[in-house]
Structures are given as structure tokens and as C-alpha cells.
Design a protein around this nucleic acid. Structure first.
Lengths: 185, 185
DNA sequence: CAGAGCATGTAAGAGGTTACATGATTAC
DNA sequence: GTAATCATGTAACCTCTTACATGCTCTG
């Protein structure tokens, strides 16, 4: 019941296609909301059924035709109404931390391998966020309200990835300093 | 396909009941994995079916009988095998950040109300983690491998909540310094 | 005597993943 | 010619949430 509002939130900023929505979600907004393209296409169809979005088909030469979606005033009202409800704490699901939690069963070398991979993924994500910051938000003082809010959300992404990296480093040093074996190895 | 491993991870440390697992997950381990009690009971039954856990019914006077689950060697082997697979980045779902992202539609006063509520929730969670740290992990140097890994996971929870709070403060100040109205208000 | 805590579940439905499907163009 | 990008979807399956159900004890 909330994917629809995440899509409406993006559509409240600009008209776009299902394809571009799934790209956005995969690259930049994925740390606070995510969905597969199949889900997005289905949800867009449902949203149109309710009259919260509307699409126009745009023919292209040398590319497949695309459906550009726009939010309706009913959709904007629904988004506004939802945004006024109090939010619950986010529910985490991080398989890597589960592995760390039970890390004594596999041993430090297995953990370190996965840890370094995670570190790289978080570093890449952070790098991407930093580049978006430098490219679009270099002059913070002159931002519109809309862009200011987007910038604050991006800042959250950057601090999130920064502390992830700091923690990875802390754990890496700890595991290197005092390695151990898994059960029965 | 991963809730089962989160349960096995906890069961690799100590025998426990479905009820206690759902309490644990709600309070302390919820930031890296979560599930409702209904899901946990069902998954425990499925795990027993596969021979990865086993339960003994413990009768109690003045309390309902309980099923104490223990991991089997097959379960431990399965957990080990799963832990060796590389992990993907966690997929976030944070409704509050979606609201922030599209914050310009509702206005800063609505956002500030929710923000302060979120800040309180994150502060409470952080406080709880800090108390667990002080109570069980005061002497870090003398921890067993098992407890050391649990401690590192807890550290992740603490740093996570700490930066959440720092971000909340940053945003609160920004919204207070430059308030704005929602569309059509 | 109402509500919270202990302790377990079932069932319906919503949400999400994985596999499959199509078909053109562009880059290596 | 192999893979990636653009652009859209269907179908089967699994996971997760929400509502309902039971019954006893302890606390205010």
C-alpha cells in the first residue's frame, strides 16, 4: 500500500515512464524505496485505474514507443493525505548483518570476503550520491523548496553510506587483528 | 527464503521459543531483520519439517506450555552454507524519507511534526541499544567470538541510530530556519 | 473488572520476486 | 555475432501483513 505513494512522490516532481522510474529507483532513490520494473508497471496501471495518474503514449523513431505518466490532481491530493499520516520506523532486512551476527559459525576469512564486497558496494553507492550532489546541488542556498527537500533526502543517503563504510572499516580491522575459525573447520 | 536463516542465526546462539524470538526481533535485532509472530511460528514449523530445528514442549505451572526450539546439526550446516553466499546490498523501505522527498507538497509544519516523532523513535531505539551495550558488553576485550560478533552487530545498530539522529537535527534546523507551505495552502 | 503479558496459532489477501516473453537498435 | 539498452508486460510462486481466535495469570 505504499509503493504507490513512492511512485506518486516521484511523479509529483516530473512526468516520467515506468522504465525511467525503475532506473531511478535502482540507482539513486533505492536506499529509501525500491521495486522491480514488473511491480512498477503493475502499480502504474492500478494508479491509472484509480485516476491518480494519466499517461500519454509517445512514439519515437528508432526506439520503442513509451508511456509518459503524469500525476493528476486527485493523485496529488491522495499523496498529500498519505504524507500527513505519522510514519513508523523503517523495518530493516539486511542479510549481511544476519551473517555477521552468526559469524562465529563460518569463521573470519569467509566474513572478511563478504565484508570487503559489501564495503565496495557501499563505497560505489556513496560515490554515486556524491556525484549527484556535486552535479545538481552545488549551490545549496539557491535551491527551490522542491530541490531543497530532494537534497536533504540525498544527504541522508550520503551519511547512511558514510557510516556503513566506517563500520565496515572498524569490523575489518577487528577481524584482521583477531581472526578465528568456524565450527568444525 | 531468508527469514529462516535469521531464525537459525539466533537459534545457533541459544535455544528459545517462537514467542521470545518475536520479542527479540521486535526490540533488539529488528534493525537488521524483522518478522511478525505469525510468520515466525509458521517458519519454525516449516524448519522443523525440514529437520533444521527440533522442539521440546515445556509445561509450566501458572503459564501456558511453550515450545523450546533448538537448531539441529543439519540446520547448522544449512546456516553455514547460506552464510558463505555473497550478500546483496540491503533494500531500504522508509516511508518517512518518501514523505521528505516529496515534502514540498505538504509544507514544513507537517514535516516537522513527523520528523520530531521519528527523532524520538530513533532516540529511544538508540537508548535501548546503548543500555544493551552497557549491560552485556562493558568488557569488550574478554568477549567470546560469539559475543564479539554480536557486539559488532550491535555497534552497527548504534552508529545507524546515531546518524539518523544527526540527520534529523540537521533537517529540523533547516526546516525551522526556512519554513514553507504546501501546494494550495 | 479492564487491560497487559504469556503463548500459541489459522486464514485471507496484499505485496514482492523470479522466470519468461518480445523486438528493435547500438556498441564492442 | 554477442551483449547491453530501450520499453513494455504476463504468470506462477513465495513472502508478509492484517484480522481473527483461544485461554490463563498478573497488575492497577
Amino acid at each position: 500500500m505504499a509503493l504507490r505513494f513512492a511512485l506518486l512522490a516521484i511523479l509529483s516532481r516530473e512526468d516520467t515512464t515506468g522504465y525511467d522510474l525503475s532506473k531511478d529507483v535502482e540507482r539513486s532513490t533505492g536506499f529509501f524505496w525500491n521495486a522491480s520494473h514488473q511491480q512498477i508497471y503493475k502499480e502504474l496501471a492500478a494508479l491509472q485505474n484509480e485516476g491518480w495518474v494519466r499517461h500519454t503514449t509517445v512514439e519515437q523513431s528508432e526506439r520503442p514507443a513509451k508511456k509518459v505518466y503524469a500525476i493528476t490532481k486527485e493523485g496529488l491530493a491522495a499523496l498529500k493525505c498519505w504524507a500527513k499520516e505519522p510514519s513508523a520506523l523503517p523495518k530493516g532486512k539486511d542479510a549481511f548483518l544476519v551473517k555477521m551476527f552468526a559469524g562465529d559459525v563460518v569463521g573470519s576469512d569467509v566474513l572478511l570476503e563478504d565484508l570487503r564486497r559489501q564495503k565496495k558496494l557501499h563505497a560505489d553507492q556513496r560515490q554515486l550520491f556524491k556525484e549527484i550532489e556535486a552535479r545538481f546541488f552545488s549551490d545549496v542556498a539557491s535551491l527551490s523548496t522542491r530541490d531543497r527537500m530532494q537534497y536533504l533526502t540525498l544527504r541522508r543517503g550520503i551519511t547512511y553510506e558514510t557510516t556503513w563504510l566506517a563500520w565496515c572499516k572498524e569490523v575489518e580491522e577487528s577481524l584482521e587483528a583477531e581472526p578465528f575459525c568456524g565450527h568444525g573447520e
